[in-house]
Each structure stands twice: as C-alpha cells, then as structure tokens.
Design a protein around this nucleic acid. Structure first.
Lengths: 157, 157
DNA sequence: TGAAAAATCACCCTAAAGTATGAGGGTTAA
DNA sequence: TTAACCCTCATACTTTAGGGTGATTTTTCA
C-alpha cells in the first residue's frame, strides 16, 4: 500500500493539527519571552494558553466528528416495478371509470384535450368534463399533477 | 417568561462548563503553588493547561454539537431496486442546460409555471422562456409531451 | 323496472400555458 | 476581445386548460 497521496489526504486533519501545534509553540515561546518581564505575565500567558487550546480542542472535535451524522431511514411508498402492474385496488378505491382512465392515459402520453377528443371520437367538452372528474378524484389541480399522481399510484404505466 | 427550570435545563451545558472552569481554576492555582519551586515548573504548568483545556474544548464541542447530529434523511425505495440513472449523453446531445433541467424536473413534479418561478426565485416570464427552449430542444409542443419524452429518454426519473 | 352511475355535450368565463420578439448581463472558450 | 451560450426579464398576443353549471342519453345493477 504505497499510496502516499492517499495517506496524506486521509490524515490531513492530523497533519494540520501537528503543523498548527508547532506554530503555536513558536507563538507561545515568543509570548513567554515577551511577557516574562511584565507584571502578571504569567497569568496572561496561562490565560492565552487556556483560550487558545480550548479553541483548538473545539475545532479539533468539530473537525473529527463532522461525519458523525445520524441517518434517518425514511420509508417512501414508491412501487413502480419495471413491468407495469395496474393497481386495481387504487382504481376502484378512487372510483375512476374506464373512460376516464383512457383519457388519463392519453393525457399522460402528452396529447392535448383536442387531440384526445379526436382520438376518442368525442367532443372537446366531453374531454374537459372527464378531466374535471379525474382531477377531482385524484385530488389534483392540473393535468401534470394528475399524471404524476397516477403514475405514482400505478394507475397508469 | 419566568420559566426558570426550563432555562436551567436549556443552559445545562453552559452552567456545567462554568462550574468545571471554576474547579479548574482551583486546580491550576494549586498546581501553580505546587510547581513554582521546581525546575521547569513553568513548562509543566503550561503543558498542563494546554492538555486540560484542549480536552475541555473537545468535551465542550462534543457536548454542544451532540443534539445537532440528527440531520440526513435517507429515502428507501421499497420496491424499486433499479435506481434512476441520468442519461448524460442524451443531456449533452440535446444540449439541455442545468437550469432547464431543473425546470423540467419541477414541471414533471406537477408544478405550474408560477409555482416553479416562485420556487426558483425568478419571474414567470423566465420560466416561460426556459419552457420554450426546452420544448424546442425536446422537439415537443406541450409540457406533458416534454415530460413524457424526458422520462423515456432517462433525462428525468 | 327504476335509481344510480357513466358518458356525452353545450355555454360562458377565467386562469394558465405557450409563441414571438427583443434585450441586458454574465460566463467561457477560441 | 469577440462569439457563443446561458440566465434573466419584459411585452404583447394566441391557444389551451380548467371551473361551473346544466342537460340528455345510455349502461348498469339492485
């Protein structure tokens, strides 16, 4: 395992900590020389150390425990197997008629109301009525929502 | 808001930290008196402070960040082993931009143009422009067709 | 057989979607 | 720096979608 770059990358935090510690030692040595001749120098020095190392500890802890997150597994009811199986229960529960389902499928295929009307040999108004009932039963407001809901519930492929 | 017990409970960590700090000061004072007469007493003292306060910082950080680790929700699809694989080739071939894809996905979710505009913090006209380009690139005339085509080509799930 | 449900259609109106055109600012690569 | 996108927004217009109401005919089923 002569993977040096990987080693460096993985221990980045530790190395950074080492470097930071070295820098701190220099700083502290300098502070020592600087304040040794002043009154209460010792207290100042000790306080500085306390503050800096507390901060260091906090930083270190945050750095090391960052990936520690609790995963909440959320169950999502999405049942769409590759081979479409019509969910008859949903259909009867929602009380969607044969004709409405037909309209829904053509809608999902991307046809306009006019095109659906022509295809089913009925008037545009009829399609609109079917749509209105469909939206009511599916509890949606738009055809795109209807398509999304219907697909999710396995009413259409 | 005279909810004293609640205040105590909520600031438990802070209070504990205060008490611990006071205890530490006593300890340090004792150490100071103890080691002031020994050679290298200063270094030992400083080292002690560093170690103790680093530990304190780590403890503090862990204590304060523990309740904030409940974050990520993982969606588990019960009956859908094959996850969606974005067809990057199609995307680049069709020359669909990131923003356009974003709009397309929201469209597919059943949102209206106005809702998409609000969600993306842009104007309705901007969404309409994105739509027009999308329809042109996908060679369709309506949003429902766009959704159908995009799904079939694995551009959206 | 009679009521309920389904399917059909019409009219009117509003809301949303879509078309066409222009334009300014930002990024990026030649 | 220029050209090519990309993202943004606007205005004006047309088309489509959707809501509400009411009605007729056919099917279905208890």
């Amino acid at each position: 395992m002569a993977n040096t770059p990987n080693f460096l990358a993985k221990n980045k935090s530790v190395i950074l900590y080492g470097v930071f510690l070295a820098a701190l030692l220099f700083l502290l040595k300098w502070l020592e020389l600087r304040f040794m001749i002043i009154n209460h120098a010792f207290e100042i020095y000790a306080g500085s150390i306390a503050v800096i190392f507390t901060a260091l500890g906090i930083w270190l802890a945050l750095k090391l425990t960052r990936p520690k997150t609790i995963l909440i597994e959320k169950e999502v009811f999405t049942e769409r197997p590759e081979t479409f199986i019509l969910n008859e229960k949903e259909l009867t529960k929602l009380n969607i008629s044969k004709r409405e389902l037909e309209v829904l499928e053509l809608m999902s295929a991307g046809l306009s109301n006019q095109e659906i009307a022509l295809k089913l040999f009925v008037s545009l108004n009829t399609i609109k009525t079917h749509n209105a009932r469909l939206f009511e039963k599916l509890e949606v407001k738009r055809r795109t929502q209807a398509i999304e809901t219907a697909k999710r519930r396995c009413i259409i492929p």
